[in-house]
Each structure stands twice: as C-alpha cells, then as structure tokens.
Amino acid sequence: MQIYLPIADLPVNIFLVLAMGLAVGFISGMFGIGGGFLMTPLLIFIGVSPAVSVATVSSHIAASSASGAISYWRRNAVDLPLALMLLAGGILGTALGVWLFTWLRSADMLDLLIAVSYVVLLGAVGGLMVVEAIRAIARTYQGKPVVLRRPGSHTWIHGLPFKVRFKRSKIYVSAIPVWIIGLIIGFVGAILGIGGAFLLVPMLIYFLRVSTATVIGTSTVLTLVTMGSATIMHATTNHLVDAMLALILMVGGVTGAQFGARAGALMKAERLRLLLGILVLSVGMRFAIDLLVQPNELFSIRLVGGS
C-alpha cells in the first residue's frame, strides 16, 4: 500500500516503512539504544533526502526513548539530578547543532558532513566496542573475572572543580565534564539524526563512572528531551520534519523495541556489546564505501527554489 509523504514529497510503501520501524525498534530494544544511527541511513537509502531523514528521525527517537524512559522511571533507574545537569549542556548543544545544520544545508555541505561524520564516529565507536567486547569475552573464557568498574581509579576528570554528588549514580564529580558530555551529545544528535545513546552510555561509564544501575535510564531521559527539542527546533527552522513518516516509524519502533528488549535479556552482556559493535562498525563502513568507491552516477540534482 503506497502512501504519499507530505514533507519528504515522495510515495513510499507503508508496510516497508513500518517494517523498518519494527526492525530498528527491535535492535534498539535489544541494545538499549535509540537506533537513530540505523534509521537515518535506512531512510536515506529508500530515497528520503538526508536533511528530512535527520529531522524526522529525531521525533522517532523521541518516541522510542519515551517508552524506555517511562519503564526505567518505574524501576527507579533514573538519576534525575544527573539527567538535568546533562540536559543543561544538552539543550544548548542541540540548539548549536540545529544552527550548524541549517548553515551547512545552505552552504550545500550537509550531505558530505553527514557521511564523513558517520564514517569517523561509527567507525571509531564501533571499532572500540568490538575490541573491548572481544577482550571481555576472552577474559571470561580464561576464567578471569570481568572488571567493568574500577572504583578506586581516579583520572584528571576527578580533579576538576565544582564537584556535585549524584547519589543514585554513586558518583561525586565535577559539573564541568557532565555539562560538556551533554553538550557534545546534543550537538552531534541534532546534526546526525542520532540520539547518541551509543556514545553517551560509554562516556558516562568510562569518564564519570556512573553506576550501571542508572546509566541507561538516565541516558534515555537525556535522549528523550534532546530529541524532543531537536524535533521542535528542526520543525521551526527548517520545516523538514515529516509527521506522517514519523508516525509510521514510531508505531513500528515502539512495538519492535518491546520484542527486542525480551531478546536482549536472554543474551550475555559482552555478546550484546560485540554484536552492537559489529553493527555500528558496518554502518560506518557502508558510508566509507560510498565515499571511497567511484559512484555509478556522478551527477545529482537538487531543487533550490520555485520561481
């Protein structure tokens, strides 16, 4: 069944989009991520322009993180003060990101930036995840205990001023790195159409040593608010959010996430991280191939305006 998307200005098969939502939702539920880094490339692949994809996916991630945030909240797995502190940076980062997005779009450089950033970001993060997960799996095979959190080890981050105690996350850190992490996530998310959970969760664990009990719940709340505000900002400045596309993606996404969460619960944490790492890495590689291999069609056309 074909449906015409009013903002993307193209007809799509409603079941195809629904299936994409379900599949990405399944993966996002399984790994506890928003899935934006998969959804944005998929939309570009079916013909939606990168700009509309990024803007629309932000609302899709808002929906999937909303259902996640509610269930983590019920389980008391959200550190609200930490989330609010991250948000202080996150909202500013989102605004900066939307501003740069608009500027790059007018300068005709948005598509290149999206592609290059995907390669660099996903390649680096995916590579690190794979290496880390393989080491963890090797350690368990050798019978050594898995060390995820080293409570005693302090880095230079812990020497910074303006220290705040976050009780629920069991940390006592400076507000500066918290604020900067929020800023980075908001900024990157707004430009690339990703929620950034796959960046945020490792950052919170490795830099701030946030307790694993609250890390995902807190990051989900941050994602919800930054992506919700990114939706509003993208709609206000660029008019590129396709509500109809977003609705289909959301319905598929939140449904798939429920089944993904059940599947994820059955797997070991290191295996999950390895799978996620491979997934992230392969999306990055896909973008790299597009940049490095000579395309079949060198020309492209773009509408600049009516007359």
Partner: peptide, 21 residues
C-alpha cells in the same frame, strides 16, 4: 506554523511512547 507543528510532532512521539509502555 513550524513551532506548533514541531511541538505537535514531539507530543505525538511522547504519546506513542507512553501508549506503548
């Protein structure tokens, strides 16, 4: 009405998420 449209879409996202939960 970009702002209201965006706000509406964001609320729709919240509602969908809440409904699913």
């Amino acid at each position: 009405h970009g702002f209201w449209y965006g706000l509406g879409t964001a609320l729709m996202a919240l509602l969908t998420g809440w409904f699913a939960s």
